[in-house]
Simulated assay, not measured.
Amino acid sequence: MRVGPEMTPSKSGVVPGPRKPRSPGPGSTPAIFRERSGWTPAAAVIKGPPGFMTNSPPEPETGSDALALVPEALRGAIEARGYTSLTPVQQAVLAAEPGRDLRVSSQTGSGKTVAFGLVIGRTLPTLPPATKKGPRVLVMAPTRELAQQVRHELAWLLAPLNLRVLSVTGGTSVRGDLVALRQGAEVVVGTPGRLADHVRSGAVVCDDVAMVILDEADEMLDMGFADELAAVLDKVPSERSMHLVSATFASAVMALANRYQRNPQAIMGTPPGDANADIDHVIHYVARDERLDALVNLLLLAPAEPTLIFTRTREGAAELVRLLREMDLGALLLTGDLDQQERQRTLESFRAGRVRVLVATDVAARGLDVPGITRVIHTDPPEDPDAYTHR
């Protein structure tokens, strides 16, 4: 997304733009509007302003040939999951020249994990036998949750080929990783730090790696994983394919891609830096000391809607959860300092709908794909346009 005159985050936290008063109508305003602060909403609703989408991806194919690009061995698994067609990103990835490095611009929820799973399923059966007991595919993702999410998606998709998928992430037992790695896995999904540790120690042998996939490459670099990425990528054979997925392509991402990719093909699932076009962007103008009141009002207006709330800091997220719980508004916390079991329980409760509000920091929620979220609220404005796009 390119922030222009319509939407320019200010240092005060108020986002200027065209004003469009919205009246809730008689009898529809919750009591908290009147009793807590007298706040009335004024909003600017922006649907696809100039610069959001520079071009539209192709519409998914339908009809008898909609799944023609899916490898035959995986078609049953795809159909069992309810697929009747492929997303534009999946079509483009499968239509690319086999073996060629891919540079994919794509947002969360575009189907990119399944797209590359199909490429793995098409490629691995054609390879000569491995010479050592090591993975054939390495996938790196920035967070534990995203890595486990990717592992889950690849596991069901590749099950018909009897391909084992394993995840190794920070915050989990190293000993458990070693036991699982000794049993062998064709596909290893990991966070950069933990995977680099296993590569350095020899627990992950890279001699037979034929494919590397970097998911959310921009975020991994933003989180300071450049050295860990290099530690892994420098150990894999030169004759391998490397696919890079990123929502944005800043200079650091391009430098990484140019260093390790060979003659890559660019696939624009979503143009770099652009936000999804099917989102309404609503701006509420409130005084700084009335932000909590405004947030509570929004939650009460649609209490059944699954809502993801972003804050800038861990401390701010924890304090907001405390305040919401004091008002009997159930909320869960997702920040980087929670241990793995807590984070997993939190996500499971949110996905299952047991709690409707999740308060998170940018890094903690990066790349998560939670079906059914209908509302995202920024209690702190994003620090830059890319952060807004990721949210």
Results as ranks from 00 to 15, higher is better:
L323I: 12
V187P: 13
S201A: 14
L181D: 12
H390D: 11
G48H: 01
S64D: 03
S12Q: 14
Y260T: 09
M211T: 10
L102V: 07
A226K: 03
P50S: 07
D289F: 04
G82A: 12
A266D: 08
H281Y: 05
V150A: 02
A80L: 03
V137T: 14
H281W: 03
A180I: 08
V245H: 11
T40Y: 14
M327I: 08
H281D: 09
Y388H: 09
E326M: 12
S12I: 13
L67F: 06
S64F: 04
E228V: 05
L368W: 04
T172K: 06
T113P: 01
S37G: 14
S37H: 14
A331H: 04
T248E: 13
P98C: 09
R34M: 03
L329I: 14
L154F: 09
N276C: 07
V363S: 05
S12T: 15
A250S: 12
P272R: 05
P60C: 07
M268F: 06
M220N: 05
V321T: 10
G111Y: 01
T374V: 10
L368T: 02
I32A: 04
T126K: 15
L163V: 08
R356Q: 15
V187H: 11
P24L: 15
R391E: 04
G99Q: 01
V286L: 15
V376N: 04
P49D: 05
Q265W: 02
E145F: 04
R22K: 06
M242Y: 05
P50F: 09
W156Y: 13
F225E: 10
E59Q: 10
C206P: 09
P272M: 10
